[in-house]
Design a protein around this nucleic acid. Sequence first.
DNA 1: TTTACTGCAAATAATTTGCAAAACT
DNA 2: AGTTTTGCAAATTATTTGCAGTAAA
Lengths: 144, 144
Amino acid sequence: MTSTESLLSALRQDGFRITPQREMIVAAIADSDGHTTADDVLARVRTKTQALNLATVYRTLELLVGEGLISRADLGEGRIVYATAGHGQHLHLVCRRCGRVIEADPDLLEPMRVQIALQHGFQPDVSHVPIFGLCSDCAPGGSD
Amino acid sequence: MTSTESLLSALRQDGFRITPQREMIVAAIADSDGHTTADDVLARVRTKTQALNLATVYRTLELLVGEGLISRADLGEGRIVYATAGHGQHLHLVCRRCGRVIEADPDLLEPMRVQIALQHGFQPDVSHVPIFGLCSDCAPGGSD
DNA sequence: TTTACTGCAAATAATTTGCAAAACT
DNA sequence: AGTTTTGCAAATTATTTGCAGTAAA
């Protein structure tokens, strides 16, 4: 079963209706390799049909996040990205200067996650963690 | 020398003018225990005088961040907080559900920071790191 | 048939910007 | 005096919302 199908059936099970718009939105999220924005979802769907409004994208994204079916990461500067929950963990290194987003090994978060859970009873959303800073190209005093 | 004074002299050294507005804004940031928003800065200053416009707050905050004199952290949902750079490191645990922000030991970041630097040449802004998730009160299946 | 969902357009809200007046150096 | 900075108000951008029509179940 594709991830699109499982997301849709989860929605249906929770009593929500499956509309063409929702199908297309979910497919667009699943298609993206795991990082989409509201705008991007609209653009992807619009390559196929005009039958989708941005407001609907927002509403559907909100619905999916609320149902825990997709995760949401705030990369700063209004950049909010979504990914299917089954897509695995992400550690995004977001460059404050050039805006570049680098993927790092999410296992690096494990020790910290465990300690935070132990010390504060806080459950970090390790599925999608943004870390801000400067990439090698933008860092001052770098070796380049 | 207070941190307010050092920030102002740094500004002056870089060729910027010291205005009453900038003095008040810098003092407000230093006064706050290290976490302020643009709105909060305006409110703090407004308790003393009306001679300050929100646009000026934004411009000054941007200036200070650009000069590296204060750090800026995006806590999501439009919550952007500022802190004086000399205020030490912060690890914010931001609850996605209730919005609570818990302070954690920034040393927890060290191992990850080192690995990220080694593996990607990326320099995380460890002065102010937000981690999103669910606090003990909001986490499902918690022990409460 | 019933009620949820969608599209449209207007409403929000936070931040940014142009420009003339005011003020730092 | 000369240039930067400020205040004001309008512009911008992303997101949200009301409402009436459309469609899933």
